[in-house]
Design a protein around this nucleic acid. Structure first.
Lengths: 157, 157
DNA sequence: TGATATCATACTAAACATATAGGAAAAGAG
DNA sequence: CTCTTTTCCTATATGTTTAGTATGATATCA
């Protein structure tokens, strides 16, 4: 039940892009410095975000990356799924065609589907904006929020 | 975000033990046959359930395994955790001492803790009894239940 | 033309997943 | 006591994934 570094670093890059947005492109080198992750590794991860349309890139001098939408228009779910693929906890849910011979009598299938749904609902209930610095200040005042984990964002998909 | 075969097979063994409970010990060989999993692999998994006190074992002739409680007194969460360990989606939540240097300013930590909580709450909201044959018949009549995944069991921890 | 950035691809070491295999130890039947 | 049957323990094998590192090509702008 682990999230890999690719998904986690992708999320941190998106937060970094949101927090350092100045209207222009942001160099990956700067993100790597701030986040303490090697440039080369991030170079391998961020193309997946670009391919999914979550960021826009520009090569060459003064090139870099920028968000394509406002932070509150991203759910964390779509960011993580862009790198981790489906978040299905067991393969037999998403295999196509679904070819497990015990599928009919399998008592656990429904349980795993429910887990899948719960995970997606939580992740799609938090927006990128919820994780940025400004929002963090707001939730810091809300002591209850710290204990209970993140509450739902404004956006629901 | 995958559950390994160990966790999944452990759950299926527990369901099998619940459904074939006749008051005596049940041989692992029979479980292996019914579940279509090799005996040798299950032999490696079930000791973890025994060590956690979820099943009782007896060696020798007429030996085998049996549940230590009623099916409705097990949550799926404790069964899965017995094999998968903590279901924390990122290591920095459970590492002791929690030694990530960015811990203070990390915007994502709270998010991952929330995910962890949601996963545990879902899993602890379903009991072993909810996954057994009798219960399955009941939910089959409830067509809404099929679409929505499993609803909470009777037991809440 | 040169500096600077993204982009594409190959490689690697270590860990993990998914088993398989061999035999020891215990318990009961005869 | 001996035999059979079962759990129990540990070692080995194999393939995949993870988490990076490395090398160089391609695009953009001054």
């Amino acid at each position: 039940m682990k999230i890999s570094t690719k998904g986690r670093y992708a999320l941190r890059m998106m937060i970094d892009l949101a927090e350092h947005d100045d209207g222009g492109y942001i160099r990956l080198k700067d993100i790597a410095m701030r986040q303490g992750i090697t440039l080369k590794y991030l170079e391998q991860i961020i193309p997946q975000l670009a391919r999914s349309g979550l960021v826009r890139s520009c090569r060459g001098n003064n090139g870099g990356y920028m968000l394509t939408r406002e932070p509150e228009e991203y759910t964390v779910g779509e960011i993580i799924r862009a790198l981790e693929g489906s978040l299905a906890p067991v393969a037999c849910i998403t295999e196509n065609p679904n070819r497990c011979p015990r599928q009919e009598e399998c008592a656990t299938l429904e349980f795993w589907e429910g887990l899948w749904r719960v995970v997606n609902e939580y992740m799609d209930g938090v927006t990128l904006a919820d994780l940025t610095e400004k929002h963090a200040c707001r939730t810091q005042q809300d002591e209850e929020g710290r204990d209970a984990g993140l509450v739902r964002g404004t956006k629901t998909i």
